[in-house]
Design a protein around this nucleic acid. Structure first.
Length: 735
DNA sequence: TTCGATGTAAACAGCA
DNA sequence: CTGCTGTTTACATCGA
């Protein structure tokens, strides 16, 4: 449990979550309980005042004595207040008022912890209550326990009341003395009860934390005006920042937290309310805070890209996108700020950029309303948020790995690590490298590897997601509005970085299965992958459809559009061969044709090398060096077990690395003959044959090894699906 | 500016 | 007639 320094010891905000939703819960400790206990009348007022303090006072302490209460003081206060409560209660009873004690308890639960009190209608609206609701189990447990305790307390009070009445009737003379005794008794009882409550709350907090750690951290302000920063533990906030926007240092996170900036992200993710101050892009704020560090700029630009992508799996208008600093690689400062000034990271081009949403919003107000209505804290939003976080995490891990690999490569090639910097634009490897490494530290191996990454994350950086966006869709009435973009993006950032990382690919697979994100792959590559993934490497059209819907959540909608596209691609591309079967017609892949259709850019080894080098920022290298590089890559391939050139080539063709990926690059180098293994006509023929005779397993295994070699993923996919996906996806990535 | 790749939309034909 | 399948054309976007 983390306690924001600003809140003092007696107040802690906890984020809970379960599978379906995340909660922000304010858990009070002793002092709050005591305060609530103090009196029926004061209980509510105290609660409300505290709520106000928590929400209304920006970043400030909650005032009062919350700030610096020591445990001893706390206990003392608790005792005092308990005694006072008991005294008042006795006075009320003694005064002959008919206030039913049971009603009293119900109306304002004397002993109800703050967390529960907050749930009362007086404190928050029904909607807020709903949002605040803790996980069902936890809530049920707590309610049960608390109800039990309340009941016990009621009974106890009743007994006390009866006794009191008797005493009043029979021993009015000695009333005062007995009262004192009872006060003490009640006070002790209350203390014990409060201790129980505290323990229960601690358990609850522990549970919350556990839940929180299991999945996403969701932030849900209990008060509309309550800033998230106040509701978040510094650690949580910092982590969230690190995860999503890449804030590195705790100081920065804290700084942003306290300044009210940097919360936007969280607010954006889940929130139901957007304080005006926070409606502006978190990126904007972030950059403001970081601009003074020139070296960090690129880093943050990368982050910003990442975040941009993450925050909008689908992007709107490409045209605008291309003008963004991200894509242009220019200083992100002005234009970027302009882009986000007065805007929202989840809002752009007149539409909601919430993943999979694409709802049109005329203005920010409408968007905010939409965001609150459609993307409130619910199962879906929570899941999406979690996916986003995983995407970020995975992407950063991936980047860290690739960066490391690049460093190793450069070291091996006797290049200075600093050299790659120039090319930060395309890949940002150099600039992002350190950052990524740091991120990787933040997210150790143990972290669940989100699906995304290899393909998706990178793509986004290249605008992939942006492309997807609905803006294009709307503007062009293109349901998907993605098409060309993907490729563009890929081309733009085409680099070896995307070399497949098997696990990540597999994870991507999972990611796309669940996330309503358009895969950054062309229809052709997807179709091809689907077919190659089939046991006999052939599928009917309907089976292809099913594969799409099964593998990609994105293709579970707009079926007419993408199905049409699938058919269109099947017919259009020569690489897809329709074969009459007993059952009917099935589609197969002609790898040769598929490879042929590769973009000219990567055709030749020189070109390839050039592209690679330029992509890596090695533009200054001379031709010989480039050639050496290319050769080294080939050597690497061969040395890693690719003994048979033909097999290598065939493998590539078979599992088709997309034209764009590293493996394909290598393949093309080979075929070009500049470096080495080239495919002979026979081999091509063999390939074709294989395509037509999918039963060949040998090819499969070879392709596997090739993939492993090329991608250096090491482990061979245990299952066929993974392997195929791995092969395919990485390729496309580079597209 | 041109070209190629890609995506989307649509029209059309054949078939069950 | 309807729906699916398959082909084809047109158009738009983007990057090289």
């Amino acid at each position: 449990m983390c306690v924001p320094p600003a809140f003092g010891e007696n107040e802690c905000f906890i984020f809970l979550q379960d599978k379906s939703r995340c909660h922000v819960m304010m858990v009070e400790s002793a002092s709050e309980t005591i305060r609530t206990t103090t009196s029926n009348q004061n209980g509510v007022s105290n609660l409300s005042s505290q709520l106000d303090g928590g929400g209304g006072r920006e970043g400030g302490s909650n005032g009062d004595n919350n700030g610096e209460i020591s445990p001893v003081d706390l206990l003392h206060l608790q005792q005092q207040q308990a005694l006072q409560a008991a005294r008042q209660f006795l006075l009320q009873q003694a005064s002959g008022l008919n206030s039913p004690s049971s009603n009293e308890v119900k109306q304002s639960p004397v002993q109800v912890p703050m967390s529960m009190a907050m749930l009362t209608p007086q404190m928050i609206s029904p909607q807020q209550m709903q949002q605040i609701l803790s996980p069902p189990q936890l809530q049920a447990l707590l309610q049960q326990q608390q109800a039990l305790m309340l009941q016990q307390l009621q009974e106890y009070y009743k007994k006390q009341q009866e006794q009191l009445h008797l005493q009043l009737l029979t021993q009015q003379q000695q009333q005062a003395g007995k009262q004192a005794a009872k006060e003490q008794q009640i006070g002790n009882k209350q203390l014990a009860f409060q201790q129980q409550l505290i323990q229960m709350q601690q358990l609850q907090q522990q549970h919350m934390i556990n839940l929180q750690r299991q999945g996403l951290v969701s932030l849900q302000p209990t008060n509309p005006m309550q800033s998230l920063q106040q509701a978040m533990c510094p650690g949580d906030l910092q982590q969230l920042w690190k995860e999503v926007s890449g804030v590195q240092s705790a100081e920065e996170a804290l700084k942003q937290q306290h300044t009210g900036e940097g919360l936007d992200l969280s607010t954006n993710s889940t929130s139901t309310s957007f304080p005006k101050a926070n409606t502006h892009s978190s990126l904007h704020s972030l950059h403001n805070g970081q601009d003074n560090h020139t070296p960090k700029r690129d880093r943050y630009r990368d982050r910003a890209r990442l975040f941009e992508w993450i925050s909008s799996f689908s992007k709107a208008d490409l045209g605008d996108e291309h003008l963004t600093p991200y894509s242009k690689g220019g200083p992100l400062s002005s234009s970027h700020h302009e882009e986000h000034a007065g805007s929202h990271p989840l809002y752009g081009h007149g539409e909601c950029k919430w993943p999979g949403c694409e709802a049109l919003c005329d203005d920010m107000g409408q968007f905010i309303k939409h965001l609150n209505n459609e993307h409130a804290l619910d199962d879906r939003s929570t899941a999406q948020c979690r996916v986003q976080m995983q995407v970020v995490q995975q992407l950063e891990i991936q980047l860290a790995k690739e960066s490391e690999r690049l460093q190793a490569m450069m070291t091996h090639l006797h290049m200075r690590p600093s050299e790659p910097k120039p090319f930060n634009q395309p890949l940002n490897l150099a600039s992002s490298g350190s950052l990524l490494k740091r991120e990787s530290e933040v997210y150790p191996e143990g972290l669940p590897h989100p699906p995304t990454s290899a393909t998706a994350p990178i793509t986004p950086l290249r605008q992939g997601p942006s492309v997807i966006s609905s803006s294009s869709l709307h503007s062009h009435s293109h349901p998907h509005g993605v098409g060309p973009i993907r490729r563009r993006i890929a081309d733009k950032f085409c680099t070896p970085i995307a070399s497949g990382i098997r696990e990540e690919l597999a994870q991507n697979c999972e990611f796309y299965k669940n996330a309503d994100v358009r895969p950054p792959f062309t229809y052709a590559s997807l179709i091809r992958h689907a077919i190659l993934e089939a046991p006999d490497r052939q599928l009917t059209l309907n089976e292809i459809y099913n594969w799409f819907t099964r593998m990609f959540a994105y293709f579970r909608r707009n079926t007419a559009t993408w199905k049409n596209a699938v058919r269109h691609n099947l017919s259009l591309h020569k690489c897809f061969v329709r074969v009459e079967n007993v059952k009917g017609a099935v589609w197969t892949v002609d790898e040769v044709e598929y490879q042929k259709r590769r973009p000219p850019k990567m055709t030749g080894s020189p070109t390839l090398v050039k592209n690679m080098i330029s992509g890596l920022g090695f533009g200054s290298l001379n031709a010989s060096y480039q050639a050496a590089l290319a050769e080294s890559s080939l050597t690497l391939l061969n040395s890693q077990g690719l003994v048979n050139p033909s097999s290598a080539a065939s493998l590539n063709m078979l599992h088709g690395m997309g034209h764009d990926d590293v493996s394909s690059t290598v393949e093309q180098v080979n075929s070009n003959g500049s470096c080495s293994p080239t495919l002979s006509p026979q081999q091509y023929g063999h390939q074709v044959h294989v395509k037509e005779e999918p039963t060949e397993i040998e090819e499969d295994s070879r392709s596997m090894s090739l993939m492993a070699t090329v991608t250096q993923n090491m482990a061979l996919p245990s299952d066929r699906d993974d392997r195929d996906l791995d092969d395919e996806l990485p390729t496309e990535e580079l597209e």
